[in-house]
Amino acid sequence: MDKKKPKKVFVQGAVPPEKIAQSIANHQSKTNIGAHSIFLGQIRADEVNGKTVSAIDYSAYEEMAEDVFHEIREAAFSEFDITCAHIYHSLGKVKTGELCLFVFTSSAHRKIAIDACNYFVEEIKAKVPIYGKEIFGDETHQWKKNS
């Protein structure tokens, strides 16, 4: 079963929109699925003291992050009756307007898919050692904090 296999989560740079379309297409053969839920995190041009964020440079404690992603997957599969789940998170620089997180859950019914998708997003934000350097237009930066 694919749910037991540790999966590669990190992608270098932005998550391309084509990856989302391709992921949807890849599930058309799985006809036991009745609902997909998708979360897309996009880089926002926050304004701080008159300066605007132009990109976020992501870094991570990759070895631990991969372990934690796997634990979150295992917990999600035991808590929710999902058919499959896919997570992609950026490393390196992602510009405003580009995508940095893609969570894709599938189930027979919508509520499970939606609840599982929310679970993944909240767990990822709370538990995975990922860091984001918010880079402003003038090349100064500050470190992102999750709210």
């Binding site: 995190g41 992501y58 991570a60 404690y61 631990m64 998170h89 940095c100 997180l101 997003v121 990822i124 934000k125 709370a126 538990k127 995975v128 050692p129 990922i130 860091y131 984001g132 470190w143 992102k144 904090k145 999750n146």
Partner: peptide
């Protein structure tokens, strides 16, 4: 031993 600031994924 890793020194980890608050997480900021997503």
């Amino acid at each position: 031993v890793a020194f980890l600031p608050p997480f900021a994924g997503g």
